[in-house]
Design a protein around this nucleic acid. Structure first.
Length: 480
DNA sequence: TTAGGGGTATTT
DNA sequence: AAATACCCCTAA
C-alpha cells in the first residue's frame, strides 16, 4: 500500500481528532506513512497522547516530555510559549511530585517523593534551565521548585507544599492548554475543505450544478461524493511528491488530462475537468503554496546562521538561537532529500533532542555552521517521530494485535554526519560550584580517586548535571 | 568504566 | 599568548 504522505497527513489529522480507542489509532498510525515534515501534525499527535494520558483523570510524567516536545516545535516556529502552556507544565510537574505525598497519609512515601523531586526538579527542570530560555521557565516554576526542594527537609515547607498543591487543578490546566494548542494548530485540512464546501455557495453550486446539468447517470449521491474537494486534491497530488508546487501540480494534472482529451472525451470527463479547474482556483485560495515559504525560510536560515556567527564573534552570545528544525524541514524536502532524514535515527543514544541542540557553538565558517545546523536538524527531526511513536506504542496495550507492515529500509548515515551531529550536541559548559568541588573532594577521600561512578552515585543530587567523566576531568584539574 | 588525549571557550 | 576550565572521544 503506497499512500501519498499528503493523503496520509489528512487522514492522520482527521483521525487524531476522533474519539478512537488508542489501540485502533495506534494501528492506523503504524499503517500510514508519516510525513516527517509537518510540525502541526506532530503537535496534534502529541496533544492526542496527552489527552490519552489524562483520560483517567490523573497526570503522568510523560506529559512533561510531551509538553516539552510541543514547546520545542512551537519554538522552532517562533511561537512564544503561552502562559497557559507554562501553567500546564508547572501544574503537571508539581502534581507528579506531590502526588507521592498525598497518596498515603503523612509521609509514608517520602522516599518516592524524594525520587520524584530528583527526577523532575533536579534533573529535568534543572537541565531545562541550563538550556537557554526554554519557554517553560517562569517565576511560578521556580517558586515551586524552591518550595518542593525545601520540603525535603523542612516540615513547615512540607505542609505548605501540600496545602498549595491542593489549589492546583492539574487536569483542568492541561485541558485548557490542549484546547488552546488545538486552536493554534487550526483546523485540519479536510475540515477546511469540507467547511468551505458546505458554506461557500459558489463552490457548492459549481459541483452541484455541474452534476445536475451533466448527463451523469450515476446516482446523485455517488457523484457528489466523487466530486468533493479532497478527492480532487488527491488526484492532484497522486503523482507529485516533494517539491512540486500545489498549484503547478494541479495544473499539470489538468494539462495531462487535456492532452488525452481525444482519448477520453466524454461529457463526463469534460465536466470533471471543468470542476477540477474551478476547484483548483478554490484550493489556491485556501491552501498556501509552500514553495515561497520554503524559499523564504531557506534565506532566513542562512542569514540566521550568518547573524549567529557575527553575534558570537562580537560577544559571548547566549541568546537562544532559533533552531531551524521546523523551518529547514521544508528546505530539506524541497531539495527532495527527506528520505534520509526520515530513516537515520538509530545512531546514537544521545540525550533527548527536545532539550539539546539549543546551544550554538561558534565555528570557523558560515558554511560549516550552516551545514551543522542542517545536520542537527535532520538528526533531531528523525528522533522526534521515532520518539513519539515509540512512546505511543509502548504506552498502549495493542502490541499484540498490531498490524505489522514491512518497514521502509533505513538509510545509514555516513560517519561524517554522525560526527557532525555528535559535535553539535555538546553540553553547555557549566561552572563547578564550590559545593560540587567540596563534595568531589569528600567523595574522592571516601571512595578513592578513580571510582567516579560510585562517587557520582553517592552524591547524585549534588552532581545532578555531571557525568562520571566530568568528575574525573574535574579532579584532574583540581589536583593539577 | 576509566584514563588519557584532544578540542574549544574563557580567563589570566 | 598562555593557562585554565570544561567537555568530548575512544582505546583498553
Amino acid at each position: 500500500m503506497d499512500i501519498d504522505t499528503d493523503i496520509s497527513r489528512w487522514i492522520l489529522e482527521f483521525i487524531l481528532r476522533q474519539p478512537l480507542d488508542d489501540s485502533i489509532l495506534n494501528d492506523l498510525i503504524n499503517i500510514l506513512p508519516l510525513p516527517n515534515n509537518n510540525s502541526n501534525l506532530k503537535k496534534a499527535l502529541l496533544l492526542r497522547k496527552i489527552e490519552s494520558e489524562i483520560s483517567n483523570g490523573s497526570v503522568t510524567e510523560k506529559i512533561l516530555e510531551f509538553l516539552e516536545l510541543i514547546e520545542e516545535l512551537d519554538h522552532q516556529e517562533g511561537i512564544e510559549t503561552s502562559e497557559v502552556t507554562k501553567a500546564a507544565y508547572c501544574a503537571v510537574a508539581v502534581e507528579c511530585t506531590v502526588k507521592y505525598l498525598n497518596s498515603k497519609e503523612a509521609g509514608s512515601d517520602k522516599g518516592k517523593y524524594f525520587e520524584a523531586v530528583r527526577r523532575i526538579w533536579k534533573r529535568r527542570i534543572n537541565l531545562m534551565e541550563k538550556m537557554e530560555n526554554v519557554g517553560f521557565v517562569c517565576e511560578e516554576l521556580w517558586n515551586w521548585r524552591d518550595e518542593i526542594e525545601a520540603a525535603l527537609w523542612d516540615d513547615r515547607c512540607f505542609d505548605n507544599v501540600i496545602r498549595r498543591s491542593k489549589g492546583v487543578f492539574v487536569v483542568e490546566a492541561v485541558k485548557v492548554f490542549i484546547s488552546e494548542a488545538k486552536e493554534r494548530i487550526g483546523s485540519p485540512f479536510l475540515d477546511v475543505v469540507a467547511e468551505s464546501y458546505r458554506t461557500d455557495d459558489t463552490v457548492k453550486a459549481l459541483f452541484g450544478g455541474a452534476n445536475k446539468e451533466g448527463t451523469c447517470r450515476n446516482n446523485d449521491r455517488e457523484v457528489r461524493k466523487g466530486n468533493a474537494l479532497p478527492r480532487q486534491k488527491h488526484v492532484a497530488f497522486k503523482h507529485t511528491r516533494g517539491a512540486v508546487r500545489i498549484s503547478d501540480s494541479i495544473e499539470s494534472e489538468l494539462e495531462a488530462s487535456g492532452v488525452q482529451d481525444d482519448l477520453l472525451s466524454s461529457p463526463v470527463i469534460q465536466l470533471a475537468e471543468e470542476a477540477l479547474k474551478l476547484s483548483s482556483l478554490g484550493l489556491r485560495a485556501m491552501v498556501k503554496d509552500p514553495l515561497p515559504d520554503a524559499i523564504r525560510l531557506a534565506e532566513t536560515l542562512s542569514s540566521t546562521a550568518r547573524d549567529n556567527m557575527d553575534h558570537q564573534l562580537a560577544e559571548n552570545n547566549s541568546d537562544r538561537v532559533p533552531h531551524p528544525v521546523g523551518d529547514s524541514r521544508r528546505t530539506v524536502q524541497a531539495s527532495g532529500d527527506n528520505r534520509e532524514a526520515q530513516h537515520n535515527c538509530h545512531h546514537t543514544a544521545a540525550s533527548k533532542p527536545n532539550l539539546v541542540n539549543r546551544n550554538s557553538a561558534a565555528h570557523t565558517s558560515e558554511a560549516y555552521a550552516l551545514k551543522k545546523l542542517l545536520a542537527s536538524t535532520r538528526a533531531a527531526h528523525t528522533f522526534e517521530w521515532d520518539d513519539l511513536l515509540d512512546e505511543f506504542n509502548e504506552g498502549s496495550a495493542s502490541g499484540v494485535n498490531r498490524v505489522t507492515l514491512p518497514s521502509p529500509k533505513r538509510t545509514k548515515l555516513s560517519p561524517l554526519k554522525t560526527y557532525e551531529f555528535k559535535k553539535i550536541t555538546r553540553r553547555k559548559p557549566t561552572k563547578w560550584s564550590t559545593l560540587e568541588e567540596d563534595t568531589l573532594r569528600t567523595g574522592v577521600q571516601k571512595y578513592g580517586s578513580g571510582n567516579w561512578t560510585t562517587i557520582l552515585g553517592a552524591y547524585r543530587d549534588i552532581f545532578a548535571v555531571r557525568t562520571a567523566g566530568d568528575l574525573k576531568d574535574k579532579w584532574r584539574n583540581m589536583i593539577s
